[in-house]
Design a protein around this nucleic acid. Sequence first.
RNA 1: GCGGACAUAGUCUAGCGGUCAGGACUGAAGCUUCCCAAGCUUCGAACCCGGGUUCGAAUCCCGGUGUCCGCACCA
Length: 565
Amino acid sequence: MNQMKEVSSGEMLSLCKRRGFIYPAYEIYGGIAGLYDYGPLGTALKGNIADLWRRIYALQEGFVEIDGDSVGPEAVFKASGHVDNFADLSVTCKECGESFRADHLAKGLHPNPDSLSAEDLQRLLRDNGVKCPCGGEFADVEEFNLMFKTRIGPGGGRTGYLRPETAQSIFVNYVNLYRHCRERLPFGCIQVGRGYRNEISPRQGVIRLREFNMMEAELFVDPEDKTWPRYMDVRDRKVRLVPNTDEKEVEMTLGEAVDSGIIGNETLGYFIWVTYDFLTSAGIDPQRLRFRQHLKTEMAHYAADCWDAETLISFGWTEIVGIADRGCWDLSQHIKHSKADLTAFKRFDEPRDVERDAVKPKFGALGPRFKGAAGDIKKQLESMDASAVHDGLVTVTVNGEPVDLDTAYYEVVRVKEKVNGVRVVPHVIEPSHGLDRILYSCLEHAYTEKEDGYVTLRLKPAVAPIKVGVFPLMAKDGMAEVAKALDMALREEGIVTYYDDSGSIGRRYARMDEAGTPWCVTVDYDTLEKGDVTVRERDTAEQKRISADDVVTWVRDRLRRKLSY
RNA sequence: GCGGACAUAGUCUAGCGGUCAGGACUGAAGCUUCCCAAGCUUCGAACCCGGGUUCGAAUCCCGGUGUCCGCACCA
């Protein structure tokens, strides 16, 4: 580590392409900014990171996993807020070509310009004669929504969008998942998939993509109970935090942070630890990892509290995971727009007898007057209690029109009811991971280069695309046959290998070092006589002799990851 | 989206109007009992795309695309 050199993003991307981790997409047609393809090693690395994540969330924490669609109808994203909030309005000067955010120009002309439609902003700017600082006239207000819009079905079809986050597929499946998880809180659901954002100006290689991979977890919790059983096991763990109060980096235990209110609740604190555990297991350097709390002003429209895991890479501190307490925002929005019942039933320990003043319909009067609508009015009245009565009248809606009813149509009666529980809209804790950014951070943090330019990727064995390089010292005298048999034995155990018998042994080690392969096994003349092989460790270049028969077990032991519980 | 710089094999680069576009590393085949990018032989591989100027364009001009740096943007 002492001879470590800082890697630049250019060198990193060059290695990524050379070794088959990441390729710029559609290169033979000139490429498209913000789109990259994963090559053979990158695909394996990405899969391994996702599998490690699944081990933690699905196996260890018991979340279920789904796989939702990438394309969805407009209503979903109306409800989620993306249609309205995910857009910017801009104007361009006809003279100098400079473009401005329209709502910024309207500051001072309106109490809340951000809330205006394109047409209203247009009128506001026109009426007030707003001009470019250069004196030029502005062209019409343009709307730019960061979602990819499409049509579902032939002809005009229905307006659809490519999802800007995977989370919505989980929220829209809430009812199914709630039942699947036996109607109990808390329960969690994860999803690994792609999201799409038509970024104005993608930069920084794989950090800002137009199509990207996410690993999102949605944990549905009781709004009144954000404690977490296993929190006690992690409260003494130390992490580096940057709270939004003074924005200074502090190292403290999660227990201290939760107790002092810096972290909003136990569950949030617990998942900050889970995230730390996951990222460092995947190969993120703990020294280049911190958790930063969102400033009140930068918090998304839905978030109650939000912590980002940030890594230090050549582009600076970069957000790779967001852990947000989204409150009841998402489910409430979908309840409002879809009218579905996205709640959880909290059963009381014992049924409670509740007395209340109910509104009881008088069918003798309602039926003759309202005919077919009477049934609906009955439902409305039964959902009310005495507090809905004002000046002896209650208001119901008939065919969309409000109608006041007097006591000829209802009466207030005191009723005794047995109540078994209450329905609540669960709150959502969301750890949302940018898989591409995590992968890239792992590569940068794994990258080491010696003075002579020798590059080693110290990827963690768990995520390394190739686990073992298998070589005959030379491809003759029967060594190749022995090496091939060993290679096959490893692959039969599901261990990814790379067999190589070309060039010098040093060159083959070097190739594996640059691909991040943790171990190499070499068959030599001694193997033919004594049956042992050389096992060479990537990070130390140390070699030891073990029996060829033990290689599979030796590797498997080192790849096994224990669950924390 | 705006301004600036840049664009040559997989990678790094030389060439800046005129022979088969040169090198290094990588890659492939082979030789060498070969454990850390050794050596030798042979081979493969490139002028971002589209127009224009010119007898002739990798080279000059225009447009596009991409990359990098600023600005803006980043729910």
